[in-house]
Amino acid sequence: MRSVVYSEAGDAAAVARVEDIPEPPAPGVGEVQVAVSVSPVHRGDLVGTSKALSSGVSMRALGTEAAGVVTAVGESVSTPRVGDRVAVFPAVGAWSERVTVPAEAAVIVPETVSEEIASIALVNSVASRDVLRAIDELRTTAAVPDEAPLVVSAAASAVGKLIVRQAIDRGWEVIAVVRSERSAATVHTHFPDTPVVVTQDGRWQRELARLIDGRPVPVISDAHGGPFVQEILPFLADAGTLVVWGDLAAQPWTLATMDLLMRELKVRAVSISRWMSRPDSVRAADREAALELAERHPELLAVHATYSLEELGDAINATRTNGSGSVLLTLN
């Protein structure tokens, strides 16, 4: 079967290749096999090729999330069944024509959700729910009223939009912070009643202060990182927490230790890589909620373009350069 693999560490554009590899093993106890229809190219997938392979491993298949059809089930599996359309995550080697995964990783896709939307329904939604779980806990511990504003940076990003949507559904007031007018337009399109602050504007801090209007902000959700951290911290209430879930700037933080010490500020990081350590019940609920969110708000799961395996290089380049949605690979 065809699969995207790499054999040596390096830039994905240089080392990732399409190759015929052996079929995956038949599903064992508690496993299912899925014929992959579509799989997204996440930026994290591309970063993965920078890691050297373990000793004795000659190649590794890429991809982590997909949508497809169940073709076989192992013992003790009652759901999903053969023929069911499913979204799968985590699915190591998802850029392959077939993958074998634990049955719990495969969630049945509602009839109204397309293959393309199903293929990107899990990772970003699961990440957003993990971030919101942390925010919810912090706001509850601090006895924060619902009307206290939640400041969300990177609000136009794939995960950011999902955070904003679910925060609004909780009845929280959200103030979105974005880097460009283009991103602001994205937020206005999806959340017309949500105020947006654009950091390209040299007066953005004054505008954010006006929107906060002297109210305490015990939690700020941030994915910008870099120098922006120092700029956003003054808006955090004393003893407040910066919930960090991304690093779009890809630069070191410029942060004065005394700013944290004098105001007893805290930083809480949330990473999708730690999600598999969450309790089984939490992960199952997150997967189900992700598909429900995809069914209710497919507009939040934007697709930029779809490529065949023969166009792998174009797909990698598009993932790195586009800002309008996910890039997909078609396999079957």
Rank of each mutant, 00 (worst) to 15 (best):
247 D>R: 09
310 E>L: 04
302 A>E: 15
223 A>L: 05
222 D>M: 01
44 G>K: 09
56 G>W: 13
34 V>I: 14
72 A>Q: 14
306 T>Y: 01
257 T>N: 12
105 A>F: 12
130 D>T: 10
109 V>I: 11
134 A>G: 09
309 L>W: 08
46 L>Y: 07
232 I>F: 01
75 E>A: 13
12 A>F: 13
99 V>D: 07
73 V>I: 15
244 V>W: 09
164 V>K: 05
64 T>W: 09
309 L>C: 08
101 V>C: 08
224 H>I: 05
66 A>Q: 11
185 A>W: 05
133 R>N: 06
276 M>G: 12
111 E>D: 15
46 L>R: 13
18 V>I: 11
236 L>G: 07
52 A>W: 09
280 D>I: 04
149 P>T: 01
249 A>E: 14
39 S>W: 13
35 A>K: 15
57 V>H: 00
7 S>I: 00
155 A>Q: 09
102 P>F: 00
328 L>M: 11
130 D>G: 08
72 A>L: 12
142 A>S: 15
133 R>E: 14
273 S>V: 12
291 L>F: 07
11 D>S: 10
44 G>M: 11
182 R>N: 11
98 R>V: 00
131 V>K: 13
103 A>L: 13
41 V>G: 08
70 V>F: 05
72 A>N: 07
262 M>Y: 11
295 E>L: 10
122 L>R: 11
279 P>T: 01
200 Q>H: 07
285 A>G: 12
323 G>S: 11
186 T>C: 08
295 E>I: 00
103 A>K: 13
130 D>Q: 12
167 A>I: 04
184 A>W: 02
82 V>F: 02
322 N>I: 01
33 Q>K: 11
9 A>I: 06
98 R>W: 02
120 I>Y: 03
100 T>S: 03
239 A>H: 13
120 I>G: 01
52 A>K: 15
153 S>H: 12
137 E>P: 04
101 V>F: 04
141 T>H: 09
113 V>M: 08
238 D>H: 10
311 E>I: 05
168 I>E: 15
304 H>S: 14
138 L>E: 15
138 L>K: 13
4 V>A: 06
209 A>L: 09
261 L>N: 05
182 R>T: 07
233 L>G: 02
247 D>C: 02
138 L>M: 10
114 S>L: 04
158 A>Q: 15
